[in-house]
Amino acid sequence: MNVGRTRPVWAFLTGPYALFLLVLLLVPFANIAVYSLHPYSPTKVFLPGLTFDNYRKIFDLYYIRLFGRTLRLGLITTAVCVVLGYPLAYWLARARPRWQAMGLFLLIMPLMVSAVIRIFGWIVILGRKGLVNQALAALALEPVKILYSDTAVVIGLVNIFVPFMVLPVMAAIERISPNLEEAAHNLGANWYQMFRRVILPLSLPGLISGCLLVYSLSISAFVTPALMGNPRERMVAQQIYDEVLVSFNWPGAASLSLALVLLTAALMFGALFATRHTGRHEKVS
């Protein structure tokens, strides 16, 4: 009998994770959405009542700049990750298994170190009297102020997020047969032409995944900008942190969080929509 066929198998396969998402992501999110619509009180989590004040506050020049800065730093971080990560991903995808394993290990290693320890390492290197400036001094050059600047935040973020770029791109390039590269050369393409016409379009889905990952992670970063950035130039996550844990303004923090998530989601769906069109050829009739 075909009783089994009528059973929704997809529900069993996706069910556990869907439940996980529902309980641990969507429910808290809904909670946050509710918070964001309540009035703020300094002594309570929120007051009863309904208000849009928390959102109105965001359309202030300060918050618009804050979001602008955050998105800009995310964009720069993503761009640097592409520039540094793509060649690495290509090399790893084409390397012998032993080199690949070693390369992956080195790549993932920064993720195994606590964020705070890793950042203190950067402070030692980038600080006013850090290794970089000592080296510059030894060469009789002017010291540079890197630590506590946007540059330091980008360095710190790139350090952690490069693997999130490399892994999906590497996976995409691994699926491209080296024969395709040879075929392109055989048809008269030099390396650049081969890359632009074969590797790049075929690895584009991986590249877009990587960019989305790095971008979403960067714009929600908290620890790195807090410890390495200019304390006067903040990112949205730091503002949310201060709202919750310093002024206990939960509704204010909730509205900022939701705004950030909605913005991220909008960018993500935009990018996925764009990939869907480049992925057309994957469909087999």
Binding site: S177, N179, L180, E182, A183, A184, N186, L187, G188, R197
Partner: peptide, 30 residues
């Protein structure tokens, strides 16, 4: 000479067609 400067055509064992290009674009590649 580098491979792309040799006047030699090669048909690969697994054909090595470009999956993202149509038949026309594959043939027009060179």
């Amino acid at each position: 000479k580098p491979p792309h400067r040799r006047d030699v055509g090669l048909v690969f064992q697994n054909y090595a067609l470009f999956p993202h290009l149509t038949v026309f674009d594959n043939v027009a590649f060179g």
